[in-house]
Design a protein around this nucleic acid. Sequence first.
DNA 1: CTTAGGG
DNA 2: CCCTAAG
Length: 610
Amino acid sequence: MEASEPKIEDCAVPVTSTIRALEKEIAHPIVYQLVRVDGDGRLVPATQDEIMAVEDLLEDDKCESKLVPDTRQISESCITEGYLLERNSFQVTEEKSNVLVDPVPDLGKIDAPEKVAVHGLVPLSELSNVDQSVRTDVCSHSQDAPNEDTPNEDAPSTSATGSSWKPDFSKLEGKICLDDLPVKELQETFKATFGRETSVKDKQWLKRRITMGLTNSCDFSCTTFIIRDNVVMKKGEEQICHRVKSRISADTENGVANSNSRGSLSDHDNRIKDDSDLSGADVSSSAFESCNVTKDLNTEQITAKRARKPTKRYIEELSEIESRETSEKLALPDKISRYQFACPETHIRPTKNVRSNARPLVTRQDSLGGSGVQIPFVSRIRRSRPRENFMPLLKLQPSGMDMATRQVRSAFDISGPQEDDKRNNDLIKTRSPGWTQQPLIAACEKDEHYSGMKIVELENDVEVNDCSEDNSDENVVTVPTQKGGMRRKHHRPWTINEVVKLVEGVARYGAGRWSEIKRLAFSSCPYRTSVDLKDKWRNLLKASFVQLPAEKGILNSRKQASVPIPAPILSRVRELADMQGQIPPVISACKSSGHSSSDRSVHEARSGFL
DNA sequence: CTTAGGG
DNA sequence: CCCTAAG
């Protein structure tokens, strides 16, 4: 890090720039940063005065339009200065540039978060590395800027913004459960952490802020403390603490304790609500706040201290988390997600076929920074084949299962320790978002013929991400094999959606062009290899002809073990099979005789075999 | 690497 | 779903 004094030299130009447009373009969740471009071409944080000034300009206009002139002007200035200021959200690879993105986390007032003052020093050369990906790292703050050119907050309450403030960790003598602290204490801690007062009373906000501040603080990471689950504790203590917490929340779950005294229950609720509230331009969920919600502790911790260039794996993990979070938050049933928060490092890994949802907060020690930073542990999307030596890996992380299972157990009922493997299975199955069957497409329900079906359109463009329902890959079962040790088998039930896509794909590109179909229709489903598609098609084919005679009762027939494939789809499959001459000779001989499309199909089928 | 088919 | 043979 370069110690760069905020020396404002010549040609100071106030800069407003959009640093982040929230994904999904909620309202106008735009955060502006205020910087100046100084003489030798660096962006220097705006001074308090400048911020004030600009704030006046911004006064009561939330809309972007008024800002346009400013922005334009500024952009020009920047370019003139040899700078490029991305108007969109940007992510900077810190390793390459000693960029200090420091969007001052704590504006004292939640109400005016659009005017976050941010400062960053971004030389042009580095800005070319700016990653325009939707994800933004701007929200994670590297407070480890050695230059004490502290927060230029526009926070009104900012008083002690001296340039020589150092975090005061003297308060961190034992472990602190932020969850336990009353607002007042939190405010104190906040002050200790950021060096200024705050009047915010929102506990959630305070906790988040503090956690973030500490996590990203270089000074802090030099201590022997770590943060986990809103608990500041000594390294090494986290395990213990965690168990305790988990147990407690399990109890709460049982209704054994309505321990408001500990506040854990309400807190969990808050968190969950908080996390699932992404979409709402909620009162308290300012643009800034939301963005933090998105990243939450996970990513905040990641960005804590990154001295070295992140490995490929690191990056993969990061992105996976993010994608996972967006999809999971929407669907997670309360109970389950609560468990995850309660026992982050556990994997629920019941015996068979159950996808573990326990992901969001799984962390491990990161060796990258050398200082034991916690970064989330996620396994990456499987690229091709599963690794063969999978078991050893499992052995290394056995911690969770027991506890997790027990908790699920205790939470759902009082069943004895026997016979509940199956039980757990079912329970989780019913709650797991990935397994929830999507509502059938309306037209599919009644219509028997495909012509009436309004299957999700497979337009030429990219499919909507309807595979996003579940991204967890933890659906892993080990299967014994004679020749080797164990081999990994992951099973992923086909959703109706996928089936429909497959069918449509076949309709378009023809059966056999599996890789094409995979590319075009299943681009959003990294799992599902072309082989999978082929296999599935084979099954569909089989199913479609088997079920042909009894076409009516299928939809509502007894509980079909797995997702029953709606008859219309099967019809469609048959149709396609006809058209493509895929009718199995045997079947086509006996079964297709009486059906409308069979004449042609017979021809084609025949011709195919001649 | 993709496809096809068997296990 | 996995594996393998064949283009």
